[in-house]
Each structure stands twice: as C-alpha cells, then as structure tokens.
C-alpha cells in the first residue's frame, strides 16, 4: 500500500509538472492583463495540433516541434487577444473573460473544421518504463518532465534577465507604478499574451505526446489548470508550478484513496477549500 501511494505520488509529480506549463501561461496572462483567459484550453489544443503537424508532416523531432507549438499557439493567443478581448478592456475583467470563452469555442471549431474529429498520434516510439525496485518510471515521462522543466527555466530566465521580462514582472506587481516608471504597457501586454498562449500550446503538445490529439485535447485539462492556478495563487508564477504539482498529486492519490471517476471533483473541492481558507493561494498576494 505504501508503495502504491509513493508510486502515485511519483506519477502525480510528473503529471503535475506537465500541467504546470499551461497553468503558467494562464497565470501569467492573469498577472499582467488582469483577467482569466478561458481560451487557455483551446490554445493548448492549437499547440498540440501545431506540434503534431510539425512532427508528422515536416518530420520535426520533439525539440523542434515544441517551439512550433509555442509559436503557433502564441499567434493564436495574440489573435484572440486583439480581435476578441482587447476591444473590451474598458468593460472590465469579466467581459474580457467571457469574450475569451467565446474565442476558445471558435478556435476549437476552426481546428475541427480543418482536421476533423479524428485522433492524431505523434510519430514517436513508445518505450517501456524503467523499474527501480518497486517503482517504475517512464523514459518518456522523464523526457516530458525534462521538457516541462526546461520550459519553466526558460520562462524564469526570461522574466529574470530580459528587459521585457522584467517589465512584465513590474506590471504584474504594480501596474500603476510600472507605468510611472515608463514601461510600455502595450508592448508588455503583447509579449505576455504570446508567451502565455505559447506556454499553453507547449503544454497541450506535451499532453498530446502522451495521449493523442483531437479538438478537445486542451479542453479536458481546463479545470485542472484553473485548480492549479488558484491553488498557487492567481497571478503567481512560482505558485502556478507548486499548485500544478499539488493538483497532479491530488488527482493521482484520489485514484487510490478515493474513486478514480471523481478526479474532476478533486480539482473543484481543492478550489473551494483554498478559496475558503486561504484565498490568496499558496504564493499569491492579491485576491480581493
């Protein structure tokens, strides 16, 4: 039983790390643009398809397909932002959120129009797991885990060292102060949307690598992404990572100690508990 729990925790950490990538995208957009982007699931699907096309049509390896997923999803995110969301800036966060929800529906159906509902699989050899004593771990999981970590490291470096990244953090921390200091808000918003949507796209591709790609690939993740972001504290970058790993573990543990069919309920219950007890989340500072 202990082994089972530990194995579930290992699985949860790996699943959570992959979940962290789109959760980072969601939380980054929230931090800088100040609204929850409900198109995040559809953007993840866009990335998954882009990666799949890169891999199976152009023969790209994973490391080549991942930037393609980032780029195409980033552009799709930019389109969502400029066509649907930005015109509503004056109407407040809620209107922007609803517009993004509608835009997500449109994206999903553009993909359906182009690719149909068929399942698409990456051309990737599938390897058996390694066994270490009682435990097992998959080379592919490890690779995805590594790719997810690399995405996060790149994001961290970008936020830490680049001018634009620092400007993004400044806007996220205190919008008015950042503007006073001469940060260009339009530019920062632009970059954030591309990076946020791009991260969602990479997350979608990482999930697609493991499963298969269809128009609902990203939509299936949405609730887990929200739970991760809320648990970590909406708008907190380290929070999204910690939240995603915690949600990943909670979902896997629920298989053993609870009922596997209730995974989605686990995410919901976590959201409710966090908001009741500690609305700012694990790392967040601002909630009300």
């Amino acid at each position: 039983m202990i082994e089972a729990l530990l194995q579930a925790l290992i699985n949860g950490v790996i699943a959570g790390t992959i979940l962290a990538v789109p959760a980072l995208g969601f939380t980054a957009i929230f931090a800088v643009l100040n609204y929850p982007n409900f198109a995040i699931g559809a953007l993840a699907t866009v990335g998954a398809y882009a990666g799949w096309v890169g891999n199976t049509v152009f023969g790209l390896p994973m490391l080549g397909a991942l930037p393609l997923a980032f780029g195409v999803a980033g552009l799709a995110g930019l389109a969502v932002q400029s066509l649907a969301v930005k015109p509503l800036e004056a109407s407040g966060a809620l209107m922007m959120a609803i517009a993004s929800l509608a835009a997500g529906l449109v994206l999903e159906n553009i993909l359906r129009f182009g690719f149909g509902n068929d399942l698409r699989g990456f051309e990737l050899p599938l390897l058996r797991d390694w066994r270490i004593g009682e435990f097992r771990i998959g080379p592919q999981q490890l690779e995805n885990f590594g790719l997810a970590l690399a995405c996060m490291a790149l994001l961290w470096a970008f936020l830490r060292f680049s001018r634009t990244g620092r400007a993004m953090r400044a806007v996220a921390d205190n919008r008015d102060l950042a503007l006073l200091r001469g940060v260009d808000p339009v530019r920062v918003a632009l970059v954030t949307v591309i990076v946020g949507a791009g991260l969602a796209g990479m997350g979608g591709m990482l999930v697609g690598l493991d499963t298969s790609v269809d128009p609902l690939t990203g939509t299936r993740l949405v609730l887990s992404i929200f739970a991760a972001a809320v648990l970590g504290g909406l708008g907190s970058i380290p929070g999204a990572v910690a939240g995603a790993i915690a949600i990943g573990m909670a979902e896997e543990l629920s298989v053993i100690v609870f009922n596997p069919a209730y995974r989605l309920v686990v995410g919901f219950v976590v959201i409710l508990i966090v908001l009741t007890l500690r609305p700012a989340g694990l790392f967040g500072t601002r909630a009300s």
Partner: peptide, 13 residues
C-alpha cells in the same frame, strides 16, 4: 475518468 490525460495510477491499480 475518461477525460484524464494520463491513467498511470489507474493502470498501477
């Protein structure tokens, strides 16, 4: 749960 992206723990069970 049919919407779960990985069923590793279920398979372990």
């Amino acid at each position: 749960d049919a919407a779960k992206p990985s069923l590793r723990t279920e398979v372990d069970q």
